[in-house]
Amino acid sequence: MARITRDEVAHVAGLARLRLTDDELERFTEQLGTVLDHAADVASLDLAGVPRTAHAMAVTNVLRPDEPRPSLDREEVLRSAPAVEANRFRVPRILGDAP
């Protein structure tokens, strides 16, 4: 049985706001299945006694002092925006509430 269905891929694509063609759905379902097969191989290893890690590097507490650094120039920032009004980014109408 496939590890991921075409419907699941379509759902995830929807969450990521990706519009996929039928061909692409087919192709990504197969590719993501291969990725999940590999994950299953890793998951099948006997890792009893191996501590859980949250990062590939065994590093913790990477912190910076609370000291301000210069921000970007506003003109420069807003020049990259598709639309600007009153020094704010102008974006399309938002449906619904912020999640």
């Binding site: 910076r64 609370d66 000291e67 301000p68 650094r69 210069p70 921000s71 970007l72 506003r74 920032v77 807003l78 009153a86 020094n87 704010r88 980014f89």
Partner: peptide, 22 residues
Amino acid sequence: TATKLFCGCANLFGDEPNTHVC
């Protein structure tokens, strides 16, 4: 704090919009 959580931009309320961004 003086700065934001993940960058050195000032954590200030009420300033001109988009002046503390990076």
